[in-house]
């Protein structure tokens, strides 16, 4: 799993090295065109007075609000939200991986557990909110549990699918060598299931952020969701938009970390990268 491909004497494959070659920068530049044009357009539209600023503040105003917040309470809110997401995600994803391994590896466990999970999955997760509030109160616990529920199912579903999609032929190689169950799990099942597990972890992470906002919109005194509510109650769309931007950046950051880990561990995949020939 920690294997690294070395360059071959044969034709070496082109690798995408962020921040090194100019082609990569060109690609990034292309991605920036649309947002930059949109921002400029918005700025002009608001400055010309076509849209009232109390409904849609100019991008420059949002930026000023953002830097004001950054000088003050922003980090408190970010810290609260990030702590909730990470804790909830760790609990939800951890339990989901255990459940997925159990159900994925044992038909017996699947027979007992899968119908229950299928039933629970049918409940839209936000429907748990009133119960969680009743049972756990409005403080941290209910928020973390809600986020954990949100992160659980994508990780669990992708985990089971990843295990069930493992090539039987590779498993047979291990059986031929007389591997024990533990050896089989560590040396074949886990690495073979890793791509699917990462897919699950990444969608679990994005759902964790979604459920964080839901939890904080309902009841919170700090956090980015609280900032959203606060902005609405004080008729400050610039605060709402600033909070949205921070949420987007944090979500992207978390996904980026997982994506980095994914490319690091799954370097060996022989996958289509989007273009037939570079």
């Amino acid at each position: 799993m920690t294997s690294k491909s070395k360059t071959l004497p044969a034709p070496t494959e082109q690798r995408w090295k962020p921040g090194v070659d100019s082609a990569a920068w060109k690609r990034r530049g292309k991605g920036l065109v649309l947002p930059v044009v949109a921002l400029l357009l918005l700025e002009v539209v608001v400055r010309l007075g076509w849209v009232p600023p109390y409904q849609l503040p100019a991008p420059s105003d949002i930026f000023i609000t953002l830097s004001d917040l950054a000088a003050g309470p922003l980090y408190k809110h970010i810290g609260a939200s990030v702590a909730r997401v990470l804790l909830g995600f760790a609990i939800g994803a951890g339990l989901a991986l255990l459940a997925a391994a159990w159900v994925g590896l044992s038909r017996e466990a699947e027979a007992y557990l899968e119908p229950t999970f299928a039933g629970l999955r049918a409940i839209p997760s936000l429907a748990w909110v009133p119960l969680l509030l009743l049972w756990l109160g409005i403080d941290e616990t209910s928020k973390v549990v809600l986020i954990a529920i949100g992160a659980f199912f994508p990780v669990y579903l992708n985990g089971v699918a990843a295990i069930r999609n493992i090539d039987r032929k590779l498993v047979e190689v291990g059986q031929m060598y007389g591997f024990s169950s533990a050896q089989l799990a560590k040396r074949i099942l886990l690495p073979a299931a890793l791509p699917g597990l990462f897919t699950g972890l990444r969608s679990g992470m994005s759902l964790a952020w979604m459920f964080l906002v839901a939890a904080e919109l309902i009841a919170a005194t700090k956090g980015l969701g609280y900032l959203l509510t606060d902005g609405r109650e004080t008729s400050r769309p610039d605060i709402v938009l600033a909070a949205i931007i921070v949420l987007a950046l944090l979500g992207k950051l978390c996904d980026g970390v997982l994506a980095k880990l994914e490319t690091h561990f799954l370097d060996w995949r022989d996958a289509f990268t989007g273009e037939a020939k570079p």
């Binding site: 799993m1 294997s3 491909s5 032929k169 590779l170 047979e172 190689v173 060598y177 050896q183 040396r187 074949i188 690495p191 073979a192 890793l194 799954l266 060996w268 995949r269 022989d270």
Partner: peptide
């Protein structure tokens, strides 16, 4: 086997010594 059945995440050397881990 009929197909090579190499572990795609291991290098050539690691695949050859696969039984020994």
């Amino acid at each position: 086997f009929q197909e090579p059945r190499l572990m795609p995440w291991l290098t050539v050397a690691q695949n050859i010594g696969f039984s020994a881990g």
